[in-house]
Design a protein around this nucleic acid. Structure first.
Lengths: 146, 146
DNA sequence: CAAATAAAAGACAAATTTATCCTTTATACA
DNA sequence: TGTATAAAGGATAAATTTGTCTTTTATTTG
């Protein structure tokens, strides 16, 4: 469904929101320890997100990543689109470039509703909402240690 | 969503069903010309499907690929599972191995309904049904030449 | 200003997916 | 029975994705 990059990206932003109380910044190593992701690789993904102004960052001492109030309210679809592009919502299920309403592939209509559901779900879910779910302990971002 | 292999595999079986009138066999080069897919690569995917008894094949003169009546009635999910496995229906949206009902990721429940919809769609759609859509000219499997 | 810190960026490597080529095996039919 | 045919299978290559390492840049703080 999502690429590994996108999975790490989503997990990272959710962690940042859940961990940075009152504007505190979170470092890349802390992030990656808490989402079970490779550090340098995830750093590059966060670079993409900061370039797209989905995440904010600060270099130097006490630097790190954080989300401002506007960014917290962004929907998950912003993260997904920045990393994986729009193919998941717009592309043909069978990979046909010319597939369209007037020139449909055999599963076009059946696929359309699913694509729309995915899109709707990602549009309606905010980063903050998912961060709160982590804060409250209702969900997790990594394998629990035993 | 699906891998390239899976896209080619689905397109191939739909073409075979749509093109093989009364048990006629269809050769790999004809298949690939009509679904815009690389020949040798698609041949390997059809090998997987024949090993899984989703497609039938015959070597030698007048050989080729075909689907018997039972195989025509198979659902698309058989094709997808044989090629891409079950991760699309069972895996976590954020790639967490331990994600489950009791230990959910933040998007677990929202994702579940979408996964179920995809699964349901693939279970309810038969290969034959899609082949008929092609036969009737209601849909296409490749870019139309202008 | 200098040192320490942390993200940004660039270069490179491993792994996986996608694609191609060549040889082998099975089948039909003359 | 032998030859042509077409799928099966093996080996290899290209492309993409994923992952690592090192250097550079910006910022804070003493």
């Amino acid at each position: 469904m999502f690429s590994k990059s996108c999975e790490y990206g989503i997990r990272a932003v959710i962690y940042i929101v859940s961990a940075s109380k009152n504007g505190e910044r979170v470092g890349i190593s802390e992030i990656c320890q808490n989402i079970d992701a490779p550090e340098h690789f995830t750093a590059k993904i966060l670079q993409i997100l900061t370039r797209n102004r989905i995440v904010s960052s600060q270099k130097g001492v006490h630097g790190g990543f954080y989300l401002d109030d506007y960014q917290k309210g962004l929907a998950l679809i912003e993260v997904v689109t920045a990393i994986d592009g729009k193919t998941l919502f717009t592309g043909c299920g069978l990979g046909l470039k010319q597939c369209s309403e007037t020139n449909p592939c055999p599963i076009h209509s059946k696929f359309k509703s699913i694509r729309n559901d995915i899109k709707k779900m990602l549009e309606q879910t905010t980063i903050e909402e998912l961060g709160n779910s982590i804060k409250k302990g209702k969900s997790v971002l990594k394998t629990l240690k035993i």
